[in-house]
Write a protein that binds this DNA or RNA. Structure first.
Lengths: 209, 209
DNA sequence: TGTACATCAGTGAACGCGCGTTCACTGATGTAC
DNA sequence: TGTACATCAGTGAACGCGCGTTCACTGATGTAC
């Protein structure tokens, strides 16, 4: 009895399921249509509910968007990194670039990385969303360098810088490839971006390679 | 007399001046607040007019946004490229990266490159705006490689690819640096992106350098 | 186990707001003679 | 040069629409005895 109550009961279970549906539909809308695409009416209809009930789950639209952003990125980060170990740092960047900067990722935004979808939205949003965006980007950067945490201290700074530039190029390539619309230019951007991402180099200009 | 009429007369001159004010205010709003920031009421008030008169100048909001995008990019492209000749292709990329990927550019969006401000907006917009965005990006790419049009035919494809990746990284760095909000991470992104942009390399993975 | 009351997720109408667009009107500018 | 009419950039009220949020209400679930 106590156990069953601890599990939540029928009502709590249904509420949790409803919240999960709301979050999933908000996450998809967020990635596909941005902040303005997360209209409460639409999200609730997607989740087979009416809009009035929304406020039993989230304080306001802002809270939903923040939760949806975290949800979406946890999902794509896990799928992106995969399980395959990489032989070297360049091999890792090459593999991650191949899996991120490609036409399928560009063409399916509802399942894609929210960092690439929301650059402009986050730039214009308030500090709260920007902080969430920054925290999620940081988690992603840490996931990129994680397998090389054993590398010498002296190399850590270089890896971090290269991961930063790698993310800027990856996000930039996909965002730009979407912005120009379908066509040859979009494909060219992805090809060039993918190649350059695998060869990113952040040595300061003073020290020639 | 005929000359004065050819110049347009008082009414035509005033109309042209009003149109220029509308366009300038729309271009600033577009860069700072995106497509939704270009509200006709606001833009017309900025231009010292009332909203009803808008349709004497533009067919609809879409036409204004397209014209403002072209206007904004012509301006920033000219300022970005400057007049200084560059000693070499790497020197050109290094100089352009320094002038694009920096805190001042990040922090003054109303005067900044619209390509970086509108990636997400253009990705979700209709084909007409995407075509304009693509055409403006193409003009920018052409301006980047223009001084090296005399280079051997065999090098042209490489220069174009590197210009593509360079733009993806430049736009991505500024867009990402804005998205994370002010702080150390934002500055790190710009520093790493700037260094990597000056060293962009799009050789295919099969041929090691 | 059965009954009476309390809780609260979800419903659906309503609100105020800003948006893009339309439209009858005004009055300075332009044109015809 | 002077007068009568035509044009049209700009005004300001009005429209329908979708938005986020509020709120009185419902009815199934949960609790107390």
């Amino acid at each position: 009895m106590a156990d069953i109550r601890a599990q939540g009961g029928v009502r709590a279970e249904r509420k949790a399921a409803a919240r999960a549906r709301i979050l999933a539909s908000a996450a998809a809308r967020l990635r596909q249509e941005g902040l303005d695409g997360v209209a409460i009416n639409t999200v609730m209809r997607d989740a087979q509910l009416t809009h009035g009930g929304f406020y039993a789950h989230f304080k306001d639209k802002q809270a939903l968007v923040q939760a949806a952003l975290v949800h979406a990125l946890a999902d794509t980060r896990r799928r992106w990194m995969g399980r395959a170990p990489d032989a070297s740092w360049p091999a890792r960047l090459e593999r991650l670039a191949r899996r991120y900067i490609n036409p399928a990722h560009r063409d399916h935004p509802a399942d894609a990385c929210a960092l690439a979808a929301l650059t402009s939205d986050a730039a214009r949003a308030g500090p709260a969303l920007q902080a969430t965006y920054a925290a999620e980007l940081t988690k992603t950067l840490e996931a990129i360098v994680a397998p090389f945490a054993e590398a010498p201290e002296a190399d850590q700074a270089r890896l971090w810088d290269e991961a930063l530039a790698f993310m800027a190029l990856s996000v930039g390539s996909v965002a730009l490839a979407r912005a120009v619309g379908p066509g040859a230019l979009s494909d060219q951007i992805l090809r060039a971006g993918r190649r350059a991402a695998a060869r990113i180099n952040t040595a300061p200009k003073e020290s020639p390679r």
